[in-house]
Nucleic acid binder design. Structure first.
Ligand code: MN
Ligand code: MN
Ligand code: ZN
Ligand code: ZN
Lengths: 144, 144
DNA sequence: AACTTAATGATATTGAATATCATTATTCGA
DNA sequence: TCGAATAATGATATTCAATATCATTAAGTT
């Protein structure tokens, strides 16, 4: 996806930050990596392409991607922060199997609307939310 | 609340665990502490009553309270796990001010129902969920 | 009281994430 | 195109919450 890469470039320019080869590589690997990748996982993949890259740079770049709304942080409650591509995708929440760890991206506009209303009832202006639904998937149900 | 204390006692007995003076003290302090306390905060309060108590015991006891459904873990996204009394209270979610950190307990049965449906549509049997709504409270809005 | 078993507290350790800092690379104006 | 200015990098140290280890102590049981 060239559009996302360009948005990253523009974001860096706007903030007077530099477009380095490391950031380019990390972006590319992130963009083609499987969804919901952790910094350590991504670091492993990036190192295969360029072993000289530092772990801290991966952490730093993921934060930049997050700040530029190209990526989004997700927390499945397993102790590590994960990142997913956000550019060109619409908001969604997650349904997670507590047995096998599989996650499904879900969205319910009615819920989104009710969240807004609920916040407004308490005088809050909603800026975001996190919602994770935990349960057993079709395949794990009834096992063991 | 004597009922919660008794439930804790029963839980320990059922699991063949011991009702120690430390657990009694930690329970009491937890029960009268302000809502959404972190282990470190609680440790500080417990130490005032008994300076010999170890930090690890506070962590361990909070986990026990959680396992016995007397307490519930909450995660406001600030890097520490917090605990709230759960015994005798009904399920609720949280609305959090991103400026002052104030939290409000909220519940919307329509949302709860829609979450069930959403999970079912994907073949999941829901066992729980976490939902946090972030925004600006009445008092922080328009400040600075 | 003796015995079995779990709990405790001090301490070390883990693991994710961030901070520090000397060196290197990028940007941009001359 | 060349520097000067400035940001980025990678190695490393550090932080912080949480857990593991383990010798000693205390509960529960007979
Ligand atoms: Mn997702
Ligand atoms: Mn609460
Ligand atoms: Zn599953
Ligand atoms: Zn506020």
């Amino acid at each position: 996806m060239q559009a996302a890469r360009e948005q990253f470039f523009n974001y860096l320019a706007r903030k007077k930050l530099k477009f380095t080869s490391q950031r380019a590589l990390i972006f590319d690997v992130f963009w083609t990596a499987e969804n919901h990748v952790s910094p350590e996982e991504l670091y492993g993949q990036v190192k295969e392409k360029d072993p000289s890259i530092g772990q801290a740079t991966v952490y730093r770049t993921l934060k930049l991607l997050s700040d530029s709304t190209i990526a989004r942080e997700v927390d499945f409650g397993d102790g590590v922060t994960r990142y997913e591509p956000h550019f060109g995708t619409s908001h969604h929440d997650h349904l997670i199997c507590t047995r096998c760890g599989k996650s499904v991206e879900v969205i319910d506009e009615k819920i989104e609307k009710l969240q807004e209303n609920l916040a407004a009832e308490h005088g809050f202006t909603l800026s975001g939310h996190s919602m994770y639904l935990y349960g057993e998937c079709r395949h794990c149900k009834g096992k063991e």
